[in-house]
Amino acid sequence: MATSAPAPGTRIVDREEIRSKLLSLVASYLEQPVTDIQSDVKLVEYGLDSIFALTLCGDVEDEYGIEVKSTLAWDHPTVDAITDHLYDTLTAEA
């Protein structure tokens, strides 16, 4: 499968970059300023429940060129939790 992301190993993984990327993704879904989104608040509290997880999973896969479980946002329900999970996945790959 073709992907535009850089090959693993060439990337420097930065936890804060992941977090801010995710925050702006969530803000864009909600059409709210990114400053309104808190990384430790559950995404369901923002009204982003089951089906939304599917959107986020696809966007994350495309952004980072990795495969994540479709239930990513169910198992890691806040931006902080997803950040940690992605950080671990990406550093393990790097």
């Binding site: 993704l25 864009s28 879904y29 909600l30 059409e31 009204g47 982003l48 429940d49 089906i51 939304f52 959107t55």
Partner: peptide, 9 residues
């Protein structure tokens, strides 16, 4: 499509 239009809303 605006990202909001890909969510439950």
């Amino acid at each position: 499509l605006a990202p909001r239009n890909r969510t439950p809303f």
